[in-house]
Write a protein that binds this DNA or RNA. Structure first.
Lengths: 208, 208, 208, 208
DNA sequence: TATGAATGAGAGTTCATTCAT
DNA sequence: AATGAATGAACTCTCATTCAT
């Protein structure tokens, strides 16, 4: 998860723009995870990336752009991880895998960056639109799994829409408590709570 | 050791420190609600409060202190409002009143400031400790209502702790979706969802 | 040597201007000795004196004036101490007493303040004139003792003026090394050096 | 996170850091000599150096650092001048050359800056350590000349250590009187006094 | 493509002084 | 005589951005 901090300094390499952009974005991500968004500035990004401030400006129009790009990358990677665990399983297994992937030590960084960035006031319209779409996707994916489970009689659900909203809200709310750290909720506890929620809401006692 | 300036005075209004501090905090809150936390600075606070920058520094040691104070005030007021609606009611009525008070246009500002400040990295240890205590209070209050309802046989609940955690997480998660604005959840929908959650979790069908 | 830091705060007393001025000057001296001249400001002087900033401004036209007054007081006291030890003695005893009074732990504060203030750029013409007169006095006093010793055949000196200049310069130079602290010269060593100087220059071997 | 400004550029001159640092230090020295240390600030240094305030900050971490560097340069140059006149001479000639180099109109600026800075409270530990070493060097150099003179029978001295301390103190004390300007001692008189001191202390009448 | 010295507006903070009370 | 809230210019330092090389 940590980008190596290679800073040759003497033998500076020329990279195609896309490669250099990625290196800079990775450097920015490391800094953001370490010091928080307000602790990141152009000079530090340049130093972390092993290039001069001019190089950073050459490849990006502004620091804002770097941060937005970095957050986008973080979220893409996170969703890719989540989605990867879902494919080709029964709905029950899919939900279990999803919940287990949501809160891990690896994902804490993603959640933290995401929350912090969201409220930092740095997001522009373009970015907001993309994230809204991403969030709708996430919502739809949960809904699809639940609906499939209902269809296959794995789940017994009166209202899949209702359960979806509740599930998504619960995920965000538990994440918040987890990151906030008080009254301390561990990643494991958050996962267990979600598993219980699935059982309670979608798998009622067979004799009822 | 440099010669200082004269003071025109015009129409100086004098206030006791406590009054002036409150005026400055209110000015800061207005700015924070309008422009976000990163859009607030000492000069603007002074202008908004109708005083000179020196006056702000006279009453507060730092801008950070103003922001922390402002957020504290916001939260205190919000919790006071919530708590006011709870007293002297049956548990069922108390929960209903609480939910209706949680998401209103008035409270949006509180939620927004609260989230933004939380992630801004401006909070110090002292502040964090106070907020953790406040959050624990909130948790305890919900738990008390639910437990009282169970004791009075208004609610039927297997595990009050479980329900409390779920309720609190749901509140935060719905608030997040509401403020985030995508996929747009209105305050009314959030309230309705919570009301349904109470019915589902605490008031099962009587014949069961 | 330390002014007590009485700060009643509740029961503030009214003092005649001269008394209040002295209290403020003493407070300023304590601060100057403790933190150096650049570490002293109007607010701190007021706090140390147990009065409000306004009171300081009421009694003094400027901070500069307080500092000048404070240094003047310091020097007056120092010279009074030096002079006290000289009266009614033989020239030899007078010089000995003088040298012993020059460098003591008590006088370090006086020297330090004096040097620091001298170079701080705060001295105005009025102050400079008074200090020049004071310095001429000091010079004359040394000269008088030496001349008296020569007249009384206690000292054998070819040129009293010459010896006076050398003695005065030596005093200042040793003080500088002492305060500077490197290569460490103690107060005792400085005194001994001056005593040897007196013997060398004014009391040659009787058989020569 | 605020939008920055454009740069007019006009006639920007670019220098390697080391060159620019020296130019800034020279500018600071000019100001210090003219207005005293307390009259120097970052803005003025920038203006004097013909650069923007930002450029000053780019090359130095703080104003303090500039002042310390400036004083160091001053002292280095002064000692270099003194030392230059000493080499390859007899001890007698060396001392004469040294004394003549000590007090000249050129060196007044060095003495003044040195004294002023010493008491300004701006010096840090690092600086103090370096200056202590420099002062020890100076002491050692005087001692070496005197000892060489004694060995070569040019000087007749009972105690070279004693004479060294006295010589160094005399130099500082005379400098103080010279710069202080009251009771006015000229550079020429100071030099003459030191020459007489050398004759008195190290070159007694041949018949003794 | 990459550099890094240069920019300058603006940030937070300090502080001697004023003046209504 | 004493207060202390208020002032505002001036301070040092930051930093995203520019541009000649």
């Amino acid at each position: 998860m940590k980008t190596p901090r290679a800073v040759p300094a003497e033998q500076r390499v020329r990279h195609p723009t896309e490669v250099r952009r990625q290196l800079i974005v990775r450097a920015a991500l490391d800094l953001m995870a370490e010091r928080g968004i307000s602790g990141v500035n152009a000079r530090e990004i340049a130093k972390q990336a092993g290039v001069s401030p001019g190089t950073v400006s050459y490849h990006f129009a502004s620091v804002r752009e770097i941060l937005a790009e970095a957050i986008t990358v973080t979220i893409e990677e996170y969703y890719a991880t989540l989605t990867a665990g879902i494919q080709q399983r029964t709905p029950t297994e899919a939900l279990r895998a999803l919940i287990d992937a949501l809160f891990t030590d690896d994902t804490e960084r993603h959640w933290r960056l995401w929350f912090e960035y969201w409220w930092s006031g740095n997001s522009d319209e373009d970015f907001a639109a993309r994230q809204a779409a991403r969030y709708a996707d996430w919502h739809a994916q949960i809904h699809a799994i639940i609906a499939a489970g209902c269809d296959a009689d794995e789940f017994s659900c009166a209202d899949p829409d209702e359960v979806t909203v509740r599930f998504v809200a619960l995920v965000d709310g538990l994440a918040l408590q987890w990151l906030r750290g008080a009254p301390s909720l561990t990643a494991e506890q958050a996962r267990e709570h979600l598993h219980r929620f699935v059982v309670d809401s979608l798998m009622p006692a067979p004799n009822s």
